[in-house]
Amino acid sequence: MSSVTLTVNGRTVTADVDPRTLLVDFLRTNLRLTGTHVGCDTSQCGACVVHVDGRAIKSCTTLALSCAGSQVTTIEGIGTAAKLHPMQEAFREHHALQCGFCTPGMIMAGIDLVNRKGAKVDEHTIREELEGNICRCTGYHNIVRAIETGAAGMAAMKQAAE
């Protein structure tokens, strides 16, 4: 076992883990943060996307020990049931989900792409940027619309904060 300390959703946690523990298993099993999902388990589907030090990564393809000292943000860390994050709100508004399994990863990927590409991101770019997230229900149209709306919502939230 090896000791690891990292910050998850603003809370510093220390745990003894088997070195082969993946970040996604650490989040789900050790911390009971089950919003982050395991879909394919082969780095393709993106259901496991979380942010590490502000960048979206696939937590099924990252060792928990590799995240020592990092800031991790999961779907549980971006909003509350009473006050959703603008990207979550946009997914609800546009009905951008059916079964919902891919949704946490889609939302974390959506936030990351707006962080990198800005609020005025166009439809083509959104589709390109969703290369690493697979949805088997929706056909993506509403997801793309939700991310466009969520991008505008994030810009408004940022403006309000300034």
């Binding site: 993106g46 960048r55 979206a56 393809t61 990252t62 990927a109 290369e131 690493g132």
Partner: peptide, 9 residues
Amino acid sequence: IGDPHVRNR
């Protein structure tokens, strides 16, 4: 290369 999440790691 790959997808955005892969490129971040």
